[in-house]
Design a protein around this nucleic acid. Structure first.
Length: 414
RNA sequence: CGGGGUGUAGCGUAGUGGUUUAACGCGCGUGCUUUGGGAGCACGAGAUCGUGGGUUCAAAUCCCACCACCCCGACCA
């Protein structure tokens, strides 16, 4: 991609109103645009990151048998009345009026919708288990949108729903999903803790949250640094400072954290209220056992920025960086430019994602922008580099000079 | 939803002690010179001062209402 052609530009200043680091850096670098409180557009650079996160999630969901689909955002009032949530959760749902009154809601989760759809296809123990997921836009009338892209009113969520014949099968799959989730966060460059939390409205059992320790988080996690045992503050009440109940190797400590995913055993709450039953081997009619599993890719992206940045800008993990190499031409001489052009064409032809700063801007601007945008590798061509290319990793202070062939070789083997 | 704060050019801000042409920086346009840490000179374009009402000879500035945004709290399957 030629930077001179990029839709977005970096800006020198960002509003003093923006306090959260993720919003500041993502807006300043032109990755996102704020439409209103809690509603952000993802611009070309930011959307590339977003899609990479989505793809990682897809791969791991597919690997555990998930089938991707997509459900509607608009849903009828009757559907939500059947589970009582039209009234009990009315503060969180956006409701739309049509000629007949407030009959349509914008879905903020899809247990109801997926359960009703499942009724068409699940009727026997032979139809179980089933796993479906979607990456779909949710709407939540948050009482207070905040923290940049971390807590928004419109956001895309990956929600997986599993259907089982019995508790044992659910328990088994629940552990499989847990591992898949940890893989997803690790691939995104995040170390997530599996945190015990209360089951909320769905179940008496605990649920699990996936929390990344960061000052920017809204939650508090009590955890053991030795074995990663963790509970949220609500569950752990007053245990900070005590020895870890799991390994006894360290004392429990508390830190702010950001919730990047959570998983719930729903049991039969939805299958019973919406009448999703199956015929067991014995001929008996039984309610399907369900669970739901959520991840917010946008919140992952915001958390990555919070965890991976320095004073100069963002530092993207290679797995989710919008491009791998930021190629800078720091001179206007024909030879330097043609060298940079040549490297750009060649690397791009090799299938490597390169952002080429070919703009008529000063060296200072290009270097600052490269730090801000935070691609994993910076490659500089200038009068100083002679026939060579200066290469520098974003997270390291030092650079080295490589010949053209060494440069190509370095990225061909990666 | 309670408390606090802020709305002035594309962006960031000053001006709030009442006034005539609303100021500065960035960015943008034209020309020339510039390329290793946000270059220089010159000229130029760009603002219903959040919205509505009120007070006054006179309102960006004072008063009222509303809206939006930010922070703290409550909330967050």
């Amino acid at each position: 991609m030629l930077q001179s052609q990029l839709f977005s530009k970096t800006s020198r200043q960002v509003s003093a109103d923006e306090v959260s680091i993720n919003a500041k850096l993502l807006i300043q670098a032109g990755f996102v645009d704020k439409q209103m409180a809690g509603a952000y557009s993802y611009l070309p650079l930011g959307y590339r990151v977003f899609k990479k996160i989505e793809q990682i999630i897809r791969e791991e969901m597919n690997a555990i048998g998930g089938e991707e689909m997509i459900m509607t955002a608009m849903q009828p009032k009757e559907l939500w009345e059947a589970t009582g949530r039209w009234e009990t959760d009315e503060n969180i749902m956006y409701k739309c009026e049509d000629k007949n009154g407030p009959t349509v809601g914008l879905a903020w989760t899809h247990e109801e919708a997926v359960t009703v759809i499942a009724k068409r296809f699940i009727s026997s123990y032979r139809d179980l288990p089933r796993y479906v997921y979607q990456l779909q836009t949710k709407f939540r009338n948050e009482p207070r949108a905040k923290s940049g892209i971390m807590r928004t009113r419109e956001f895309i969520m990956k929600d997986l729903y599993s259907f089982h014949a019995d508790e044992a099968d659910l328990d088994k799959y629940y552990e499989v999903v847990k591992l898949a989730y940890l893989k997803i966060f690790a691939r995104c460059g995040l170390e997530a803790l599996v945190v015990e939390a209360s089951g909320g409205a769905f179940t008496k059992n605990y649920s699990h949250e996936f929390q990344v320790i960061t000052e920017a988080g809204e939650d508090y996690t009590v955890y053991c640094a030795a074995c990663k045992y963790a509970q949220n503050r609500e569950v752990a009440q007053g245990k900070v400072g005590e020895a870890c109940p799991a390994c006894a190797q360290a004392k429990l400590q508390e830190a702010k954290s950001s919730e990047v995913g959570n998983i719930f055993k729903l049991g039969t709450k939805f299958s019973e209220s919406l009448k999703l039953y199956y015929t067991a081997k014995s001929g008996e009619q039984k309610p399907v056992i369900m669970a739901s599993y959520g991840i917010g890719p946008g919140r992952i992206m915001g958390t990555i920025v919070e965890v991976h940045h320095d004073d100069a800008g963002m530092v993207w993990p290679p797995s989710v960086a919008p491009y791998k190499i930021h190629l800078l031409a720091l001179a206007s001489s024909e030879t330097a430019l043609s060298k940079a052009d040549q490297a750009y064409s060649k690397l791009t032809a090799m299938g490597i994602e390169v952002l080429y700063d070919d703009r008529q801007e000063s060296a200072g601007i290009k270097l600052k922008d490269a730090d801000l945008i935070g691609l994993p590798w910076r490659v500089v061509v200038s009068a100083k580099t002679g026939d060579n290319f200066e290469i520098k990793a974003r997270h390291q202070p030092t650079s080295q000079l490589l010949s053209y062939s060494e440069l190509l070789n370095k990225f061909s083997v990666q």
